[in-house]
Amino acid sequence: MEKNTRVCKKCLLRDMGEAEVFENMYQYIANLSPEDKVSDEEYEQRLMICRQCSHLLSGMCGKCGCYVEMRAAMKVRHCPDVPGRW
């Protein structure tokens, strides 16, 4: 049985245009297996919480440096703030 794989082009952000960065991020999220991804409702709830957080800066978390939209999509990831917000 072939396992679903995620593809990472290993590009530097400075080498890509902003539209390509977002396209790659959303493609990565879309390719997560259902077992690894939170429900659409939980994803939107997490993003709503992140939108209100003082650590959010240009789509990135000031606590850990991740893209919050990628982190929020994964079941095994949680808010890095102490205490975590989600």
Score class of each variant (00 low, 15 high):
G84M: 14
E2W: 11
G59Y: 03
G65H: 04
D40L: 02
V68N: 04
N24I: 00
L32Q: 09
H78A: 14
C66D: 05
L13K: 11
P80F: 05
M48R: 11
A19L: 11
M16E: 14
H55P: 00
V76T: 01
R51K: 13
M1W: 10
K10L: 09
A30V: 06
G62K: 08
G59R: 07
C8D: 12
G65Q: 04
M48T: 12
V68E: 08
E35A: 10
H55R: 10
K9R: 11
C11T: 03
D81C: 08
V38M: 09
K63D: 03
Y26Q: 15
C61E: 03
E69A: 08
G62T: 11
K63G: 00
C53R: 01
G62W: 10
Q45I: 03
V21E: 14
A19E: 15
C8M: 07
K9G: 04
R71P: 06
V68Q: 05
E23F: 05
G17R: 12
A19D: 15
K37E: 02
E42Q: 15
E18D: 08
E23S: 12
L47D: 05
V21Q: 14
H78P: 02
E20T: 02
K9V: 08
L12M: 10
V21I: 15
M1A: 12
V38L: 08
G84T: 13
K10H: 14
P83Q: 04
C53S: 09
C50D: 04
Y43P: 00
E69F: 03
H55G: 01
K75G: 02
Y26R: 06
S58H: 12
C61G: 06
N31D: 14
A72F: 03
R14T: 13
I49D: 00
G65N: 08
G17E: 15
K10A: 10
V38R: 07
V7N: 13
E69S: 00
M74F: 01
Q52V: 05
R77S: 14
K9N: 04
K75I: 15
I29K: 02
R46E: 05
K3C: 13
I29G: 02
S33P: 13
E44S: 05
A30M: 05
R6A: 12
R46S: 11
N24D: 04
G17A: 09
V21R: 07
M1V: 11
D81F: 03
V76L: 03
V82T: 14
D40G: 04
Q45D: 14
K10F: 10
M70L: 13
N24P: 00
D36I: 04
D15T: 08
M25N: 09
L56G: 07
R46A: 05
M25L: 13
S58I: 07
C79M: 12
F22N: 08
S39N: 00
L57C: 02
D40E: 12
P34F: 03
L13P: 10
M60T: 13
R71F: 01
R6C: 09
W86G: 06
M48A: 14
C64G: 01
L13V: 12
M25S: 12
A73G: 09
